[in-house]
């Protein structure tokens, strides 16, 4: 059996070199770190997961909300809120007219691919490049606000930043989008950052997690 490696594919995560200890599975035409031999308990404690190869897309314009609605996706009522589709996608509303949709591991993001195939409205709805412009890192576990407080000046405690909240802010001095959500009941902060700064932020987050026993996890640790 030949092992799957990130370099088996043309599409590669921005941080795959940080994942040399992982075993990989194929997801959306790339290698997804699946297992780092620490499992769900680690994810419950403090985990850092790279989901950068998982499909995601975005749309901006006056007709973007209608486009998503037509595709059957739940559109959050206000900017900086996230909603979850029945099929598990996260719909992020970043402004009145900007939306990102993050794919679900369960279908390897297939619904994002089909969304990208849908014809766009005639005007005022522009696809965005967040698949490549941003890396997708997800923090998991019981200490998310405390971990983020080491890199970010926004109050992300439950009272101020409940489930479904989004913060577009600065973490470790780079721009990020932080989303408070859950995967299979596991508390998660998804952090989307400049893909060119992914390795930098990866390092910063691991450092911040250290005192909470944080480790890199694979997608298998989510279930």
């Amino acid at each position: 059996m030949s092992a799957i490696t990130p370099e088996s594919f043309s599409k590669r995560s921005f941080v795959y070199r940080q994942l040399s200890a992982a075993s990989f599975t194929e997801v959306a035409g790339a290698a997804q770190a699946a297992d780092l031999k620490n499992g769900r308990n680690q994810a419950m404690q403090a985990g850092l997961l790279d989901l950068s190869v998982l499909p995601r897309t975005g749309f901006r314009g006056l007709n973007a909300a209608a486009h998503l609605q037509a595709a059957g996706l739940p559109v959050p009522a206000k900017p900086n809120q996230a909603s979850v589709a029945d099929s598990g996608e996260l719909v992020l509303r970043l402004s009145q007219k900007e939306f990102w949709v993050l794919g679900n591991l369960a279908d390897e993001g297939a619904r994002i691919d089909s969304l990208n195939q849908q014809p766009l409205p005639d005007s005022n709805c522009y696809p965005l490049y967040c698949q490549d412009s941003h890396a997708w890192l997800t923090l998991t576990g019981a200490h998310l606000p405390a971990i983020m407080a080491k890199v970010c000046g926004v109050d992300l405690r439950e009272e101020a930043f409940p489930l479904g909240s989004i913060a577009q802010t600065s973490a470790a001095r780079i721009n990020v989008v932080i989303v408070n959500h859950q995967i299979n009941g596991l508390p998660c902060f998804t952090v989307l950052c400049d893909s060119a700064a992914a390795e930098y932020l990866w390092e910063c987050l691991l450092d911040a997690m250290g005192e909470f026993g944080g480790e890199v996890i694979g997608s298998g640790a989510l279930s």
Binding site: A172, A196, Y200
Partner: peptide, 28 residues
Amino acid sequence: RIFDPYRRTAMHHRHNELGAKMMPAGNW
């Protein structure tokens, strides 16, 4: 723990493997 962000291109590690002398360009 002062944060000093850096940016790397997708090909960054290939340059290192080829023995590149790296230089900063902004935070790249």
